[in-house]
Design a protein around this nucleic acid. Structure first.
Lengths: 140, 140
DNA sequence: ATACAACCTAAACCTGACTTTAGGTCAATA
DNA sequence: TATTGACCTAAAGTCAGGTTTAGGTTGTAT
């Protein structure tokens, strides 16, 4: 089964320009061409693209995905490198989540603050710390 | 108490160029200048900067922070807008966290996979799905 | 008075992941 | 055969949030 770039684009919901961009970045080294220089994708390429999408979701940069593919092709001698890559990515993802959880607390406090302010028609709410006061944001 | 740009930079651990950038973007409208055109920061400016740092952590874009400051200055008539801003930010932050949690699961699976592969010296691990197989990534 | 660190500006550059543009080619249909 | 839609390339543009560069001014210590 083969596909044109337009078909792949619709199938995977990736824009044509993005597909060409990935190809140019060396992420799709296996894509064939017709005599007339037109890309012909097969199922292997489709799988490769789904893999890229997947790895991207984990927060991997395109260059790291390319590197990962290259290591995969090199075989078992690169297992350590691949392991290290994902350990690093795990740390990074956990750090991002922790930061966002923290941020979420602040945002939630803000939502609460403005909910009450809205009910009373003013931000001068007794019992709540001053809106523009540093302490509010830093300690909340 | 007043501070030079260099002092503020060290105090808040924000680079001088970033401080000048914020000023240029209109995020520090209150910063005074000497007759010789040199910035003089006071405690209000310091608080303002800490506020910016804080709002940035919540994922707010600089232009939204600027907008928020402007709304604060306009007074109680903008409470609804400010409330809406933070509700939106709450949604967005929750969405980001959910995506990262999902990504983390995949990364953890990868870490496990390579830990075992490392022990055995090969990625051909019986009982584990094939490394480069789509199904692994999509379902894991 | 002179050196020198710290300050100033505008404008160009940077990163990453694309998108857009301009100009041209290919392939299938009428 | 002519049109038209899908394809091709290289290169420039986009976004945010800065950093770097180039060239010039200020302020302070000796």
């Amino acid at each position: 089964m083969t596909y044109s770039i337009g078909e792949v684009s619709k199938l995977l919901n990736i824009s044509i320009s993005t597909l060409r961009y990935y190809d140019k970045q060396g992420l799709l080294p296996l894509v064939n061409r017709t005599e007339g220089n037109i890309r012909v994708f097969d199922d292997t390429d489709i799988e490769c693209l789904k893999m890229i999408e997947c790895l991207k979701t984990t927060g991997l940069a395109l260059k790291d995905i390319k590197q990962f593919f290259e290591w995969c092709e090199e075989g078992d001698s690169t297992i350590d490198k691949r392991h290290a890559l994902f350990l690093q990515q795990k740390e990074s993802t956990e750090r991002q989540i922790a930061e966002l959880e923290n941020a979420l607390k602040r945002v939630n406090y803000k939502c609460e603050f403005y909910k009450i302010a809205k009910e009373r028609g003013t931000t001068s709410v007794p019992g709540l710390r001053e809106e523009l006061t540093l302490k509010f944001l830093v300690t909340s």
